[in-house]
């Protein structure tokens, strides 16, 4: 019973990973790609680690999976913010159908 629940969680995780990678191919510009795929892939990896914890029960493997999940949840938004800021300052343009760009207006004003 416990193994079946763990395998179901892992299947959902792999599905989320696949959706994130399809988004990496399909979306038009860097910022949309960054958000979509990093969120979906972080969700998929968390679900896979949760499935590992459910299968292993209370054991050293489960403790390490918990620590790994904590690191993933701390690390992925930080790298997202750092990459978005660095690529905007480094000169990557927005998509040409973007609606509004307040940051560029403020830079031009000052």
């Amino acid at each position: 019973m416990r193994e079946n629940i763990g395998f179901a969680l892992m299947c959902f995780g792999v599905i989320f990973d696949a959706v994130g990678c399809v988004g990496l191919i399909r979306l038009p510009d860097l910022y949309n790609r960054l958000q979509a795929s990093l969120k979906c892939v972080a969700m998929g990896t968390s679900l896979i680690l949760l499935g590992t914890m459910v299968i292993a029960g209370l054991s050293p493997l489960s403790a390490k999976a918990f620590l790994c999940l904590l690191f993933i949840l701390i690390i992925s938004p930080t790298t997202e913010h750092a990459l978005a800021r660095a690529s905007y300052i480094g000169g990557v343009k927005l998509w040409k159908k973007s609606v509004v760009d307040k940051f560029k207006e403020d830079i031009d004003k000052s």
Partner: peptide, 22 residues
Amino acid sequence: TASDRAVAMDILGIMIVAFGAL
């Protein structure tokens, strides 16, 4: 651009963690 490649590398790194768990 180079930023696209950096994003793809980050995502590949997170997926390797999932592979290790499996």
